[in-house]
């Protein structure tokens, strides 16, 4: 039994199965974060007073994190390019770099959280901190998920490069689509929470 279109594109739809699958998943993710952004807007417009993010949060650290995530996005896409150029060694470097940058992002995030807790700024303090911790926490979970997938493709998952390079390249494309989406979410989170 062979499931069709796991590698090749179906002629009438123009995509292979996993590509359609990941875009559907990302569509559901848009609705997930959409609901949280909607909540943010409702809580903020309904609040008597709402602090500017930069008065409470650490903008330089978050800017650094933005740079880290953008950099990890380009290493991710470069790892895909490397595979298409049949350069497995370069691929390993780039995908490994992506995972490391994910770690750097999480460490910086942890420093930020730690500083908040030190000043007794917990989610229960007010609705601004509540939405801040919920949105960044959920985003952080997405980063962790992406790192696990990418680490798998750096390590054990990369064996497929030998047996079926075309399918493996597709997998990296799909993993990349997810990783860029996580970056995309941060691009909106950053100004909304920190700068406004």
């Amino acid at each position: 039994m062979q499931i069709p279109y796991t590698v090749a594109e179906r002629p009438d739809t123009g995509v292979f199965n996993a590509k359609l699958g990941i875009w559907l998943f990302l569509a559901s993710e848009v609705m997930l974060f959409g609901a949280l952004f909607s909540s943010y807007i409702l809580l903020r417009t309904g609040a008597l007073a709402w602090p500017h993010g930069y008065t409470i949060l650490n903008v330089p650290l978050a800017t650094l994190n933005t740079v880290v995530l953008i950099t990890s996005s380009i290493t991710m896409v470069m790892s895909w390019v490397a595979l298409r150029n049949r350069d497995f060694g370069k691929y390993r470097k780039y995908i490994g770099g992506t995972v490391l940058l994910g770690f750097v992002f999480l460490i910086i995030k942890a420093i930020e959280y730690g500083a908040k807790f030190e000043h007794h700024l917990y989610p229960s303090e007010n609705t601004f901190l509540a939405i801040y911790f919920t949105l960044t926490g959920l985003h952080g979970l997405h980063v962790i998920g992406g790192m696990i997938v990418n680490a798998y493709f750096w390590g054990p998952g990369s064996k497929m490069w030998v047996t079926d390079p075309e399918r493996f390249t597709n997998r990296i494309e799909v993993a990349g689509l997810y990783w860029h989406f996580v970056d995309l979410v941060w691009i909106f989170l950053f100004p909304v929470l920190y700068l406004l």
């Binding site: 739809t13 123009g14 995509v15 590509k19 359609l20 875009w23 996005s73 380009i74 991710m76 896409v77 990349g176 689509l177 860029h180 989406f181 970056d183 995309l184 691009i187 909106f188 950053f190 100004p191 909304v192």
Partner: peptide, 22 residues
């Protein structure tokens, strides 16, 4: 943010050359 989002989705996620279904 929208310009940045446009860049990421169109180039990194290569939406610019994606299929109509997507």
């Amino acid at each position: 943010a929208s310009i940045k989002g446009y860049l990421v989705s169109n180039y990194f996620m290569h939406l610019i050359s994606e299929r109509r279904l997507i």
